[in-house]
Amino acid sequence: MITSILVVIFLAVIIGIVLGISAIKFKVEGDPIIEKIDSILPQTQCGQCGFPGCKPYATAIANGEADINQCPPGGDEGIHKLADLLGVEYKPLNAEHGEPKPKSVAIIDEKTCIGCTLCIQACPVDAILGSAKHMHTIIEKECTGCELCLPPCPVDCIDMVAIEENAENWKWKYPVYKIDKVSERRAS
């Protein structure tokens, strides 16, 4: 009787020590789930999800305040990844938040631009250069295609131009052949 109690106490102490040590040694800094969600989001910072950027949306998802299907630029693939990460069921994109569009960049028509700087203030990634009363240009490489600069422009001089396929960004396509309907169906 006493032996068994002692054994249990002994075990409890050992396990307690092990747990205690591992709690210190393998301590997880911060809440990585938000970072993980954020790394899946496309970082367009477009706000179509209803939050003022990707990080706030990621935080909202982590806190259960937002659904995983509110990000049009991330597309279906993004939703699948989020569903995998969070272990929840996949949902189709919520149409309220918009439709996925081909990746584009904003181009300022420099003839029309009046240099009002409103777009500069709207750009979430500081991809627009220019100062007051001087026409602006967009650093194409940095533009995420979020379209946030479109509404503030008083003279409608910004156009979204879809990125065209060229020899640089061109990709090999998925093989297509006539026969083998079964496996195609399975793959899709």
């Binding site: 496309p42 970082q43 367009t44 990707c54 500081d126």
Partner: peptide, 14 residues
């Protein structure tokens, strides 16, 4: 992914 990282940095900086 790299582009997204750059965009995130720029956004945070902003």
């Amino acid at each position: 992914y790299e582009q997204a990282n750059i965009a995130r940095e720029r956004n945070e900086f902003r």
